[in-house]
Amino acid sequence: MIASVQASLKSAIDSSGAEIVSGPMPTIVCDSVQIGAVFLNLVSNALRYRHPDRALRIRIDARKEGEFWLFSVADNGIGIPAEYHQAVFEIFRRFNKPGQESGTGIGLALCRRVVEGHGGRIWLQSDGDGATFFFTLPDVQPATSP
C-alpha cells in the first residue's frame, strides 16, 4: 500500500526532493482503498506543507499495541499549532499560514471518518517543527484456508 502511495505521488515527491522512509507494515483486514486514501492524504499533506528551509523527510511506521496497530506518518514540515489539532479533522476546517497554499478542509475529515469506520482513532502531535499523525486500526488478521 505504501509503495502504491509513493507511486501515485511520484511527481510531487521528485519535485520536492522529499525522502520517504517506511518501516515494516503489517498485513491486516481492511478496506485497502479507504486506508490507502488515508496514507495518500497524510503523505500528500506532508508534501504540501513542507518547510521551505529544509529538505522534507517523511517517516511511516507501524507497531502493535494490544488489540490494535498504531500507524504514524511523521514529517519535518511547518507543523500545526496546538489550538488546531482537533479542528483540522472537522470538515471544511483547516489551518493555513498567511501566503500558504490552502486546502479544502476535506482530506483530514475523510481520514477521520475512514479510520473511525474501521474501529480506530486518529490524532496528531506537533510542536511547530513538523507533525506526526497517528491512527489505530484493529488487529484483524486475514483468514487462512484449511
Rank of each mutant, 00 (worst) to 15 (best):
I91A: 12
A12V: 09
A46E: 00
T136N: 09
S4Y: 11
V114I: 15
E65N: 10
I91L: 11
D75Q: 06
S32D: 15
Y84E: 08
I80E: 00
A3C: 06
V114H: 05
L70C: 13
I60T: 01
T144G: 07
C30D: 08
S72M: 07
F71H: 15
W69Y: 10
E19L: 12
L70R: 12
D129H: 10
G77L: 06
Q100C: 04
R59G: 07
D127C: 06
N45D: 12
V33M: 03
G119N: 06
Q100V: 03
S72I: 07
I35A: 04
E67H: 11
A7Q: 15
Q86V: 07
F89G: 00
P81E: 06
Y49I: 07
F133N: 01
A74E: 15
Q141E: 11
V140F: 04
S22A: 12
V140P: 13
I60W: 00
G77D: 01
A109M: 08
I28D: 05
G77E: 01
A74H: 14
I13D: 00
Q34G: 02
N96W: 13
L56G: 08
L9C: 02
V33S: 03
M25E: 06
V43Y: 15
I2S: 06
V73E: 14
P146Q: 03
E67I: 08
